[in-house]
């Protein structure tokens, strides 16, 4: 354990090494590039700067299959390019960690400003049914912790796990304590030791089965059960209860840091494992007359929470990459007045 001043992106890089990562492939993109920079000089890690994000994610799929823990890091535009291969990795059950340091979109948007516009892309970005585990810490300390957690969850679930961050938390400097968190080891045998066939086709026992609906149903069920089982280990959230309030504020990532300013008037719930949504929220929500999600998009997590709770959830959207307490106050007041 040591005290150390780190930037959010640096913390991800150092924690990844701590988690046993041996292979990193990436493509430069603001605001995630520092992860690539930080790793470049580390002798424990093979670092590749690829020609694009598609190549990056596929290279780490190959490296992970070859037996080493692997990671890539990007921002929204690169994350969009990776989507096909993320579904592919779910289908083949390859453990990976994909870091997405979000910036304002759509498209090139505002590269140096933070946003939270990739929430639904994490869950629904690739085609077909898959069940990702997504963590979204809100401090440098937590980025360190949850990078290791993400690696553990990936190894345990044999699937790509997404670590979300944003331009704000990613570029934030904080002093942290580098705790020795437990690390899950690789269980899957590496390539070159057997005669397995890894395929993105619907398959059973290493053999493609592209015309049997029963095999496909079984496979999807397996992916879903596996995710449920592993995510149970990581029911991570923060709940600040305010007994005098009848309203629950839900915020995560950069926005949750702003939400702490309102704890005198509201209760605050901050999911850390944002997908699958922490079930505890159902129980907590019952106590409150009103639920408000504040996030840096036009209601992506709100719609997911609504779907889970089967009740109306209100929204304070903060767009354009600037978190201004006045804006948030204004939004909350408008909701109070019923507008």
């Amino acid at each position: 354990m040591a005290k150390i001043l780190l930037q959010g992106n640096q913390a991800i890089a150092l924690a990844a090494i701590k988690a046993g990562m041996k292979f990193f492939a990436g493509y430069p993109i603001t605001p995630a590039s520092e992860i690539l920079h930080e790793l470049t000089n580390k002798k424990e890690v093979k670092v590749l700067q690829m020609e694009d994000e598609i190549a990056s994610v596929n290279a780490i799929i190959g490296a992970s299959l070859a037996g080493v823990k692997s990671m890539t890091a990007t921002s929204g535009p690169g994350f969009s390019l990776m989507q096909e291969s993320i579904g592919y990795a779910h289908m083949m059950e390859v453990p990976l960690v994909i870091v997405n340091v979000q910036r304002v979109g759509p498209s090139t948007g505002m590269p140096t400003f933070p946003a939270q516009g990739d929430i639904l892309q994490c869950k629904y970005g690739s085609h077909g049914d898959y069940f990702p585990i997504v963590f979204y810490p809100n401090s440098v300390d937590e980025l360190y912790k949850y990078t290791i957690t993400a690696f553990n969850a990936a190894e345990e679930s044999l699937s790509p796990v997404i670590l979300l961050s944003d331009g704000y938390v990613g570029h934030l400097y904080e002093t942290i304590e580098t705790v020795d968190y437990p690390v899950s080891e690789r269980a899957m045998a590496p390539l070159g030791t057997s005669n397995r066939h890894f395929t993105g086709l619907t398959h059973e026992d290493s053999k493609p089965a592209t015309s049997n609906p029963e095999v496909h149903k079984k496979l999807i069920k397996h992916l879903e059960t596996k995710q449920k089982k592993v995510s149970k280990k990581y029911n991570d959230y923060e709940y600040i209860e305010n007994n005098s309030s009848d309203t629950l504020l839900i915020a995560y990532g950069a926005m949750s840091r702003a939400s702490y300013n309102f704890k005198d008037d509201y209760s605050i719930f901050r999911p850390i494992r944002i997908f699958p949504i922490v079930e505890k929220i159902k129980e907590i929500a019952k106590k409150y007359k009103e639920i408000i999600v504040m996030e840096m998009n036009t209601g992506q997590y709100k719609s997911e929470v609504e779907k889970l709770l089967h009740r109306e959830v209100k929204l304070v959207p903060i767009l354009g990459g600037k978190i201004d307490l006045q804006d948030i106050w204004g939004g909350l007041r408008r909701l109070k007045r019923g507008k």
Binding site: F23, S56, N58, G62, S85
Partner: peptide, 13 residues
């Protein structure tokens, strides 16, 4: 994506 996957495999082992 055969080539980047192959590159990842080769460079990892």
């Amino acid at each position: 994506r055969a080539i980047p996957v192959a590159e990842g495999i080769k460079l990892a082992n």
